[in-house]
Nucleic acid binder design. Sequence first.
DNA 1: GTCTATATTTTGATAGAC
DNA 2: GTCTATCAAAATATAGAC
Lengths: 210, 210
Amino acid sequence: MNTMTKTATGVRKRRGPRGEYAKSSATREAILDAALEVFASGYNAGSLRDIATRVGMSEAGLLHHFKSKSVLLSAVLELKDDRSRALVDMAAQDAAETLRGLVALARHNASVPGVVELYCTLSAESTAPAHPAHEYFQRRYDWVRESLERTFARLIAEGRLAPGISARRAAIATIAMMDGLQVQWLLDRDVVDMADALQEFLDGLVIGGI
Amino acid sequence: MNTMTKTATGVRKRRGPRGEYAKSSATREAILDAALEVFASGYNAGSLRDIATRVGMSEAGLLHHFKSKSVLLSAVLELKDDRSRALVDMAAQDAAETLRGLVALARHNASVPGVVELYCTLSAESTAPAHPAHEYFQRRYDWVRESLERTFARLIAEGRLAPGISARRAAIATIAMMDGLQVQWLLDRDVVDMADALQEFLDGLVIGGI
DNA sequence: GTCTATATTTTGATAGAC
DNA sequence: GTCTATCAAAATATAGAC
């Protein structure tokens, strides 16, 4: 499956199915891990210098892999996106399963505070139109909202959504609840259990509970 | 009521009840207004230079009134705090009145996007312990949470809160809903009416509605 | 109370050697 | 692929004249 290639130095290196070099790939991952931690306190608050130091290389070395700060941010966001999409089936046939997946995701997130910080801080920061992740978060919220709207539409069809609430409103409220709980949790982790609180909210929304 | 004082230049100036000079007071207000707009996109993203330019003075001139960037941020937050406390009676005898006040506040906030941006961005940013407003937001959330908990406790005493929900959980969920709606509203103002959505949430929480 | 000038850091990014 | 050296810009803050 892997191919071998000659490099400038004459050393042979592994190349993966995507065409990237093994060393590059490992380094890129290390950079992305460090960037996640640094950007967790905000895009503006974090510096390339800090990221480079954590990964043990120079800024120029880092910029060889990601040509600018905003490119690096995008890469971090897309990586984390892939991982969290794998945790929740947003298009499950059983709508309640999707909602239980959200609760499970909330519970999982409590074990990786860095990821929660990243999304919480960046989503708020990115509401500024000039922010490098502005369009990313607009698209992401649109996608989650529409996926959840379909989920709640299924529940309505089954007569299982609390009366008087539209699928769209339920979707908006659910996302708002998840986001808002994160802020309080990050400010003081003893104040709230995100997963329990989300579950309680959804149980109040779905007849018979989720 | 006002007293008059001699200045170094021999010019007489008005002094208000708090002892500040009229010119200082007006300048300070102009600075605070500009700072609100600039800090709306985040503490780190905003610069003193930008604020100084907007208010039409030099950075040194600005720093005569607020001795550092973080002092200025604190002043902005405290000012806005005073104003929003005036809009909602968090300790009203009628619990539903407090909740209706929250909805009214949400409706009012939609007319001053800058304030919403400020609180939304800074509360998320300030979850980082090193942030200059970290303690401020911890205290603020504690206070709001405890006030709302008392409000919901009154509703429980009247048998008007949805069964199975504690006053504390209701308080946490209400705050989360307000915060979360702000993010979605800031990213796309056509997506959600913050006040309507909050009202719907509270109507689902309180038997008979608010 | 406001300005000019300046000190001091820090930042994102590039050029070019190896 | 990584480094050193360097740049240019921007930031916060201070000193001192007026």
